[in-house]
Design a protein around this nucleic acid. Sequence first.
DNA 1: AGGTAAATCTGATCCAGATCAATACTTGCT
DNA 2: AGCAAGTATTGATCTGGATCAGATTTACCT
Lengths: 253, 253
Amino acid sequence: MPQSKVISLNKLKVACKNCGLAKLCLPLGLDSGDIDQLDAIVQRHRPMHRGGHIFQTGDKFRSIYVVKTGTVKTYTQCPNGTEQVVGFHLPGEVVGLDGIESDKHICSAKALETTAVCEVPFDHLEELTSTIPGLQHQLFRLMSREITKETGLMVLLGKSTAEERLAAFLLSLSVRFHNRGFSATEFNLSMSRQEIGSYLGLALETVSRLFTHFQEEKILLVDRKHIQILDLDLLYDLLSNQTTCLDKLGAPS
Amino acid sequence: MPQSKVISLNKLKVACKNCGLAKLCLPLGLDSGDIDQLDAIVQRHRPMHRGGHIFQTGDKFRSIYVVKTGTVKTYTQCPNGTEQVVGFHLPGEVVGLDGIESDKHICSAKALETTAVCEVPFDHLEELTSTIPGLQHQLFRLMSREITKETGLMVLLGKSTAEERLAAFLLSLSVRFHNRGFSATEFNLSMSRQEIGSYLGLALETVSRLFTHFQEEKILLVDRKHIQILDLDLLYDLLSNQTTCLDKLGAPS
DNA sequence: AGGTAAATCTGATCCAGATCAATACTTGCT
DNA sequence: AGCAAGTATTGATCTGGATCAGATTTACCT
């Protein structure tokens, strides 16, 4: 029974070398033969629905996951019940790298909309990286980017005002969408105000007010989850006395 | 002239296999022969004085550095002149991993006291990791820990009160000192109130007041930079309704 | 379609911690 | 030793954003 599913799924598979995200993902810089080897260990699953879990806190660490379509949020649960969002992950971005050290996942990863991921079993990946120097380097780069990204966010959370945080968040999304071939100025948010607030260390009411405020300032046009950036420069200006943390907020070059 | 220095320095060298930090550092899990190979690429420098830079923002990324003795702070400079501390690094901890992705350092690293570091040229390290699977894995683990650590700090900065932040900071230091064979309850801070505040997203006055407050509560005994934790349990209690982020704050197991 | 729960917006109030300010205390420099 | 500059403490005030509360809209379910 699972066998038949696998076969039908194979038709849905997009090989790494035909994947539009390859230049953002593990295959970056690899030659065709190496990509085939990587391709062979990647497990592609059927898309999961909104709310589905990729992994949960405490799960044994076996694989890392690359978002193929959709959006993933990573979060931790506080003892008092509230959740703390630690990241939003767009297509081409990797989740699960935090699990390597302790051999179990230290946060949960959940689909914010219909989402497909490529699962890369980590033990296989480690074997491959030993023989494919370019793959090893790319994995180091991805992990380094993760560190850089989080450092940028730390700086943002440590010092900045609510306005600066939301501006940085929107610009980060803008750049990341742009790098994926989407509009830099018009997109849909797949997360709630609550989740944005949690991620940015703000109350959801503050996020809501800021959207209204940005709209009054003619910086944005907000319709529910749909965002249109009317003036990118104004948004960048809001971050002008900020560390140049923008490029640290998740924009692959 | 530099040649003679190098020779005299050789006497000061501690080979990785004789280094007390080996179990926290890259050699963890390697056999004797592999450690020798690693040892051969490590560059050991004379200790640097307080204030000396290991690298600065924008420097080309060539090496990662392991703190051998002393303390290192990493920080970024904001356009308006203020600096933002992004980390404090004790012996056995690695700095510079953020530079891999963009091939240049995105923060600066400075000695907070007389400090010695082991420099590990990254291109050599990458070559070695290809042939020593255990070393590769350990490097992945170290990078993963870095990610975990920063995630924990993000959560702390996003949600917690000033009191919780300082408690988490002190406990993180306590655990890390303990893991290095020092007292878990009595140590010297090598950083200023200002720097602690910057790291925790607090004003230096707030940090100062909290030290006073903790002292009044009989949790701490503070004398300038010298800290004695009188009641570890009380300190842990302050974090009780916190994400279990403590183990994410830099405590190698 | 209609009903219920969830998400969002908006206003009013409050407070933790920033900022401003003044005074010690250290430490380094000549 | 003595001055200057950095560092820490403590107090007084102010404010950005949290929290509380309510109204409104939207999404989901059968």
